[in-house]
Design a protein around this nucleic acid. Structure first.
Lengths: 105, 105
DNA sequence: ATACTGTATGCGCAAGCAATCATAAAGGAG
DNA sequence: CTCCTTTATGATTGCTTGCGCATACAGTAT
């Protein structure tokens, strides 16, 4: 099967397009955090958060830094948060538009 | 289960983060297209393309216009294409960085 | 009415994904 | 060394997704 550019684009976007990962990214907006800080903050299992962080790092959108026992993750590209913000903008406009959906169908 | 904002953000982003849908969006960059134009252009089944278009429209990122038999779809929010472009930018920078991965591991 | 074109949808399948529990691995402290 | 903390991973389960095939539906034309 041929591998196109949109394939890799999809990988980047898929690494962002998930609720738990969006919550993590929102936390990382303020700077790097270790797993032990993140998983209580978002109310998820440690293993689950670890997997998501690993996944995003492998996808190339997070950096990883070791400090003793702890491992700190941070957002690697500003574009990632820009994408999140654009999604928020679309969402805002959409939920605004949706008032007439009650009438239009 | 509690429904948060990141839930809806994820829905928007998921509607974009897929290879076939990215190919469709790339086509729609030049303006509205009907299903009959899209599916041969991207080499996918008509039914498959129809589903993806429907999905994106329901997600709120495409508009739908009927003209006789044909149904024309178009990108609804400029932010959608902006997101695609940001993903491309990340991808470019990443694949640039990846030269040292051959050495570093 | 029939025939044709364009689009949507039901069904099934295979693959992927997210979450949990339990456990392993890595590093620090006593 | 042992004990504890932090992170990663194997196994499992249930859910979702993307696709293809066949078929239904909608609109046009004759």
């Amino acid at each position: 099967m041929a591998v196109t550019t949109s394939d890799f684009q999809a990988d980047i976007l898929k690494a962002i397009a998930q609720e738990t990962r969006l919550n993590i990214l929102e936390l990382l907006r303020d700077g790097e955090r270790c797993v032990c800080e993140i998983f209580p903050a978002i109310g998820q299992e440690q293993s689950n958060v670890s997997r998501h962080l690993n996944m995003m790092q492998k996808a190339g959108i997070l950096t990883r830094r070791k400090d003793g026992l702890k491992i700190f993750y941070a957002v690697k590209h500003a574009e990632v948060l820009a994408i999140v913000d654009l999604a928020t903008a679309i969402l805002k406009r959409e939920t605004g538009d949706r008032h007439d959906l009650l009438r239009t169908g």
